[in-house]
Design a protein around this nucleic acid. Structure first.
Length: 294
DNA sequence: CTCCACTGTGCGTCTCTCTC
DNA sequence: GAGAGAGACGCACAGTGGAG
């Protein structure tokens, strides 16, 4: 059919898949299935149809998924946004179809950047996929999940314009009670000064009334490190910085192995509350995201 | 001395606000 | 609507210091 008929041809599930892909380019099938809450069979069916319509393409040996340029155009038109801009930014098409999939061979600026840092991109996808799965089994409703470009927040503090650029923002709800978070996935083992610098934008943001104004509640700031040692160091830095700034920042810290074992909604987080860092697995800690812990 | 990991700096990119 | 300026991010690059 003609392209202008596409929106009416697509089912709600297919539109949800397109939206997910627009937020998380280069996502692996497994992660996408978990995000959408569909099994392998169902996912294959959806992808087969969308690939047949030319809206989605799988790239590289890993079959990383992304919207095609037609897919980007379709969503841009729906959002009354400039389609050419969207393609320039998000196109996953290679310059050279014969050449292997590398970041240098990708047209879109943002999608190129995401492919270049594929380890980080995949880590965030994996976190969110696990979160979505765990949320379903534990009765949480995943209301909202924003990729970095929608999770950024710009605000004024001391007269200057500042911003936070999280790797993701999410809003969940259970029994009518909401819980929200910003995610920062930290790759590099960073020095104390760098750790403090990463924290500073959030300290400024939470020093303003904006978190509550923006979301109706104060989202937790989740910081995940690749290795445990860096997470422990960060806890110390964060404790000092929070005390120094006198800001009540709902910060939770963890590391990859702990998240993989406990799940994002599990017991693997250390809180920095009242200036006192609580070490990981120091006795039975309350479930951080449940009713008990707040 | 060489090698390697880490660090600081410079640059490019993005999005916001302000101004015209 | 276009352009400038500001703040934040992340890469490339070069310098530094420790280990062998």
């Amino acid at each position: 059919g003609p392209p202008w008929m596409l929106p009416s041809l697509l089912t709600p599930a297919e539109k949800r898949l397109l939206d997910a892909l627009s937020g998380w380019p280069w996502i692996a099938r497994e992660h996408l299935g978990a995000l959408l809450g569909v099994g392998r069979t169902r996912l294959s069916g959806l992808l087969h149809r969308l690939e047949g319509l030319g809206l989605v393409r799988a790239h590289g040996p890993g079959g990383r998924l992304a919207l095609s340029e037609d897919g980007l155009t379709l969503l841009a038109r729906r959002d009354r946004a400039a389609a050419a801009d969207a393609r320039r930014r998000w196109s996953a098409e290679p310059f050279d179809r014969e050449a292997p999939l590398t970041w240098r061979n990708v047209r879109g600026r943002r999608s190129r950047q995401l492919l270049r840092n594929l380890a980080h991109t995949s880590a965030v996808h994996g976190f969110l996929a696990a979160l979505a799965g765990q949320a379903r089994t534990e009765g949480w409703d995943l209301v909202q999940l924003d990729p970095p470009h929608r999770a950024s927040r710009y605000f004024r503090h001391d007269g200057a314009l500042h911003s936070v650029h999280p790797d993701a923002f999410g809003l969940l709800r259970r029994d009518g009670k909401p819980w929200a978070f910003f995610l920062e996935w930290e790759r590099r083992a960073v020095r104390p000064s760098t750790m403090a610098a990463r924290l500073a934008p959030y300290l400024r943001y939470y020093a303003t009334p904006r978190p509550t104004d923006d979301h109706g509640l104060r989202p937790d700031v989740l910081v995940v490190f690749e290795d445990e040692l860096a997470a422990h160091h960060f806890l110390g830095v964060a404790r000092r910085e929070l005390r120094r700034a006198g800001v009540d920042l709902p910060l939770r810290v963890s590391h990859r192995a702990l998240i993989e074992r406990e799940g994002p909604l599990g017991n693997g987080w250390a809180a920095v509350a009242g200036g006192a860092a609580r070490p990981f697995r120091d006795g039975p800690t309350p479930r951080p995201f449940g009713d008990a812990a707040g």
